[in-house]
Simulated scan of single mutants.
Amino acid sequence: MSPHQREDAAISFDPLRPRLVRIAYRMLGSVADAEDVVQEAFIRWMRVDRAEVREPEAFLRRTVTRLCLDHAKSARVQREHYVGPWLPEPVIEDEEEQEDVTLPLMLALERLSPLERAAFLLHDVFGVSFEEIAATIDREPAACRQLAARARDHVRQSRPRFEVEKQRGLEIASAFFAASRTGDMTALSAMLAADVSMHADGGGKRSAAVAEVLGRRNVLLFHKALAVLFRKHGSQLVRTALISGLPGFVTREADGELQTTAFEIEAGRIIGIYVVRNPDKLRHLH
Rank of each mutant, 00 (worst) to 15 (best):
P160N: 02
G203S: 07
L28M: 15
A208I: 13
L105D: 11
A254E: 15
L229K: 00
R206H: 04
I265F: 06
Q5E: 15
C68K: 09
R181D: 15
M191N: 08
V210R: 12
S174F: 03
G169S: 03
R231A: 10
P15V: 03
L28P: 08
D138F: 04
E116L: 01
G204V: 07
M1L: 09
P160F: 06
E7Y: 00
S197R: 14
R111Q: 04
V64K: 03
N218S: 06
L242M: 10
L282T: 06
S235C: 14
M106H: 07
T261D: 12
D201S: 10
V210G: 12
R22P: 07
V228Q: 05
E35F: 05
V128G: 01
V250R: 03
P141Q: 01
L112M: 01
I270Y: 09
R277K: 13
R161M: 12
Q39L: 13
K281D: 15
T240H: 00
S2T: 14
L242C: 08
H123E: 12
L115G: 00
A175Q: 13
P18I: 06
R168D: 15
V91N: 05
F59D: 00
H4F: 00
L147D: 10
E165V: 15
L237S: 03
R206V: 13
P56H: 02
T251E: 15
V228F: 00
F59E: 05
A254I: 05
A148Q: 04
A151N: 05
G84C: 10
E40Y: 11
S174G: 08
E80D: 12
K73Q: 09
R26A: 09
M185L: 14
A41E: 12
G204L: 11
A72Q: 09
M1P: 08
A119E: 04
P90N: 01
A10H: 06
K73G: 00
D255Y: 03
A75T: 11
E99R: 04
Y274I: 08
S158M: 00
G272L: 07
A209Y: 05
E165T: 14
N278P: 11
V21K: 06
S2N: 10
P56Q: 03
G215H: 04
R54N: 07
A134P: 09
R217Y: 00
S113G: 02
A267E: 15
V276F: 07
V83E: 12
F162V: 09
K73I: 08
A190V: 12
T186G: 13
I243N: 04
P90M: 01
H71N: 13
E99D: 13
V196Q: 10
R61L: 09
V77I: 04
R26Q: 03
L20C: 10
V128A: 02
E131W: 01
K73Y: 04
A208M: 06
L103K: 05
T65R: 01
E163M: 05
V48E: 14
T182I: 09
V83N: 10
H223K: 04
V238I: 12
Q39C: 14
R145I: 09
G245I: 00
E95T: 13
R50D: 06
A200P: 06
L246V: 02
A190S: 14
R145M: 08
L221N: 11
Y25T: 11
